[in-house]
Design a protein around this nucleic acid. Sequence first.
DNA 1: AATGAATGAGAGTTCATTCAT
DNA 2: CATGAATGAACTCTCATTCAT
Lengths: 229, 229, 229, 229
Amino acid sequence: MSKQSAALQPHRRLFADRKRNPDGKRVAVLHTAVRMFLERSYGRTSMDDVATQLNITKPALYHYFRNKEEILVEIYRLGTDLIDEMLDSIEADEKPGLDKVADFIAGYIQIVTGDFGRAVIRLDDGELSKAGRKLVRGRKREIDHRLRAIIEGGIGDGSIASCDAKIASFLLAGAIHGMAAWYEPAGPLKLSAITNQYVRLLTGGLAADGLRELAEPPFAFKGNAHIHG
Amino acid sequence: MSKQSAALQPHRRLFADRKRNPDGKRVAVLHTAVRMFLERSYGRTSMDDVATQLNITKPALYHYFRNKEEILVEIYRLGTDLIDEMLDSIEADEKPGLDKVADFIAGYIQIVTGDFGRAVIRLDDGELSKAGRKLVRGRKREIDHRLRAIIEGGIGDGSIASCDAKIASFLLAGAIHGMAAWYEPAGPLKLSAITNQYVRLLTGGLAADGLRELAEPPFAFKGNAHIHG
Amino acid sequence: MSKQSAALQPHRRLFADRKRNPDGKRVAVLHTAVRMFLERSYGRTSMDDVATQLNITKPALYHYFRNKEEILVEIYRLGTDLIDEMLDSIEADEKPGLDKVADFIAGYIQIVTGDFGRAVIRLDDGELSKAGRKLVRGRKREIDHRLRAIIEGGIGDGSIASCDAKIASFLLAGAIHGMAAWYEPAGPLKLSAITNQYVRLLTGGLAADGLRELAEPPFAFKGNAHIHG
Amino acid sequence: MSKQSAALQPHRRLFADRKRNPDGKRVAVLHTAVRMFLERSYGRTSMDDVATQLNITKPALYHYFRNKEEILVEIYRLGTDLIDEMLDSIEADEKPGLDKVADFIAGYIQIVTGDFGRAVIRLDDGELSKAGRKLVRGRKREIDHRLRAIIEGGIGDGSIASCDAKIASFLLAGAIHGMAAWYEPAGPLKLSAITNQYVRLLTGGLAADGLRELAEPPFAFKGNAHIHG
DNA sequence: AATGAATGAGAGTTCATTCAT
DNA sequence: CATGAATGAACTCTCATTCAT
């Protein structure tokens, strides 16, 4: 293993503490693994790295997980579970669609700045086998559909201006996914400030009563983004 | 090489055609490589894969590039050059800041839906050596700073509502970066429609005269995104 | 692997025998490696060659050594350790310097005709990384300094005629190093006979009472050793 | 090519100057090659390295030499020619054997401190093909035999004490070969001083009238130079 | 006479995974 | 349950050598 950030140390203990809590050991592995995968990517993190980090041997890892992919899939599962829970709670509310969107933004930011949420967004599901990829992508698609439904609800109830919900949901999700890449808890930007501004900017654009016409028609960039030999 | 999509075929020709255009060959390599890196990721694309795709042998590749990283760096360079050009052209304009932002959105979408632009966003710069990473991240940071300056200009000229330009630029860029992940030219969503709606939603949120207060304070998700062992 | 002399066979056994003696396995690798390096040179001996010789696979080798260089460095270490030990023992003695030199000659011949001693002399330390080279060259320099000190002691106690100890030590060492190249245990020359004559000739030249003037001044070769184009 | 010492520069010119002296070009190649081989070893010097150093292309090199080995063989030939010449001149003299040996020492030192002489001693003839190796080793053996004959002559004429000429010639040659490894023209030790002392020490040991008995019988080192697993 | 391009063969190294213990 | 050891397969990169021009 090449490098190991100080942040990764705690779980060594964690693992030892759980000697008689086998399920807890699986979770400990996942916690260590998700951090390492986020820090160095799945592909560049070897099973040896993970085992060393946990102070166990490699075959011990294989005791808890059939293979490397199972670890990754499990991480995805935990992460998407978090998102599903949040969506459940939002769908249960009785609110105008725009307010639900605001709630989604705030909730999604919470999740996406945690390890497992970040993993869902940042880890490359191309590393998975066909089966695993299908599973993970299905869950991602489902999440997108639920967000889309919320937006459509808002258009229906008049709180959100008429627009293509598919595009809007991609925009929303994308803007927040970006955070998974740059947000640092120790950084200068407070999570609450970011959340506030995200909500204002994103709902501001969606709001039925907040549109305005641009002075000029949308600019078409004349350069050629698609380089041809 | 495991799989090769039909989309990758054209360049075989390109390479053969350029027998006496040495610089063109380098470019042909880059075109093939960027597609493969986007499709299967840099790490999972071997030099052999790239060579086979180009109908040459592996050592021939090393005739044109010192190593795999040089290919990746060159791809980043081409991609970031495109973005820089666009920013140059926008900065040269005399317009309200908000309109510049609209132009940026449209221009950036153009770039980000092309191979090299997409590469800048999707390829993992963690695969690079320290030196390469420094180079690439520097250019990314520079781009972000330029966008931030445009937004600050808009706040200054009154076309954009007062906000944290740093957060706003992250949001903007993030929303568009998302497209690099999901946009497909052959898909049902027309690029012009997407661009239109992106401009409307994103500038709508930023516009000085388009804000509105939310009915309720921003929702705080009660679930725990940061799972603790 | 191209060729394998019969002389290299025994260690196959050695390795298998040591299944449960992990440290012994490292040593077994070193024994096989040093022989192969001496026979075919480090550069022309591949890790595969060494592994095959030991009846294991290449990756298994990497279980015991981080890389090829570590094997070479370890060989150097064992070899220089032998020399250091010998010097320790000589330095501890209370004898005239000339007798110490005689002891050194005899002891060094012993070492230099063994595998690890030969390796120190014959293997090219230019194959090492900068760090490894520094280490090895440092130890060689140290050995030379110790020999030099012994000679200086002899000059001081009057047993050795006044001379440049640096040159003398190079001469001495060089003459013996030569043996590493040509000596063969199975050859017609007995080690004891060689040692005897080496001691006589070399100490004869050094002895305070054994000098004589040449009939003519040292000959200057008129040919040109430094060919110029 | 990784590194190139300043010392290697001059020949670039040399090659260009010889545009119409094809044989001279071969020689220019040899001069550059021998320096590079000495500095980085034959194995670690690629044909590309040599060509680059000479400012020509690789196939141009192959115009002058059939392959890499031919370059090395030619270098050996030039080097051994120098030694043969010297031996011719010594054999032609009418002198006591001991004085001939003194002349040999001085002459050999001259040669061994030049590029081609050094090459004969330092370059690994194990890199050669079977045929090349046979050729080169034959010439080396011949040189040794001639030196041995000179020593035997000295024993015969009474100037050299009775001894095994084979051992003595190995010792002599070995001591001088050592110089090829450590001697540096720019170093603190003057060549004349070294030569002087070499002659004194080596002939001192050989001289019929210069022997003396050691106070103790030759020491037998008790350590074990032949490490056994 | 000389070149740009290309190649087959092989090197060192890494890694997910599996046994025997 | 846990471990040390081992492996097959893959990957990046190098190099002597040879064409077509």
